[in-house]
Amino acid sequence: MPLTLHAHPFSAYCQKALVALYENATPFAFRHVDFGKEADAAALAALWPFRKFPVLEDGATVVPEATIIIEHLDRHHPGPVRFLPDDADAALEARLIDRVVDNYLMTPMQKVVLDAIRPPEARDAFGVDQARAVIGTAYAWLDTRLAGREWAAGDAFSLADCGAAPGLLYADWAHPIPLRLATLRAYRTRLLARPSYARALDEARPYRHLFPLGDPGRD
């Protein structure tokens, strides 16, 4: 039975799962979720009551959350690219960077972006400033951590890179990476050129009008 990914092309977390699928040319069906359609929202809620995508169906098994989807693929549908190293310490490093990207880039980036669609009287300037500060801290930490590495956790593309590709794309749109962080900027460039992410990025282009801060006209 084929895999089915319930997702939207413009979502950073959905792109994270798509990168893993594209890396190994894993066959799957894409189920486009449009929250503006009641039937789509209801179908997703039936799979995952939190109504968050991506969600992967693997036969009778429902796998939510992008990180868990990638680990599921690595275990049950392995390919040439392994997303978690066999070495336990190297696997911890990949998971650490994955958590930093999700918690300290993706989450505050969403705070900045979603605040822009609030009514002016409901906006949270203080919260947005705090979110930007967290992003800045994450940028500096990653710039130091990535020194001497081609990919996030070392020489091999991993789970950490699957999330860092969309994470750094959208974070840089919302809060530009400072020019002084040359290591991080070069890493972001490598991610954008990776064929798996280049494909996901191209598929997202028709939805760029959805970005509340405006299409930056690059990447």
Rank of each mutant, 00 (worst) to 15 (best):
G79L: 04
V81M: 04
V81R: 04
L84Q: 06
P85V: 00
D86S: 01
A90D: 13
A91G: 09
L92K: 14
L92D: 08
E93P: 06
E93R: 15
R95L: 13
D102H: 00
M106I: 12
V112G: 04
V112C: 03
V113T: 13
D115H: 12
I117L: 11
I117M: 13
P120M: 08
E121K: 15
R123P: 14
D124I: 03
F126N: 01
F126M: 07
V128E: 14
V128L: 14
D129K: 15
D129W: 00
Q130R: 15
Q130M: 03
R132G: 04
G136R: 01
A140R: 11
W141E: 00
D143H: 02
D143L: 06
T144K: 08
R145D: 07
L146D: 09
R149W: 00
E150D: 12
W151S: 07
G154S: 10
G154T: 06
S158G: 03
G163P: 03
Y170W: 15
A171Y: 02
D172C: 02
A174N: 06
A174C: 12
P176V: 06
P176Y: 08
I177W: 10
I177A: 04
R180E: 14
R180N: 09
L181F: 07
L181C: 02
L181G: 04
R185M: 06
A186H: 13
R188C: 10
R190F: 08
L192V: 00
L192H: 10
A193D: 15
P195F: 02
S196I: 00
S196H: 08
A198R: 15
A198T: 06
R199D: 02
A200T: 13
A200D: 05
D202P: 04
P206T: 10
P206C: 04
Y207S: 12
P212V: 11
L213H: 10
G214K: 10
G214Y: 01
D215E: 11
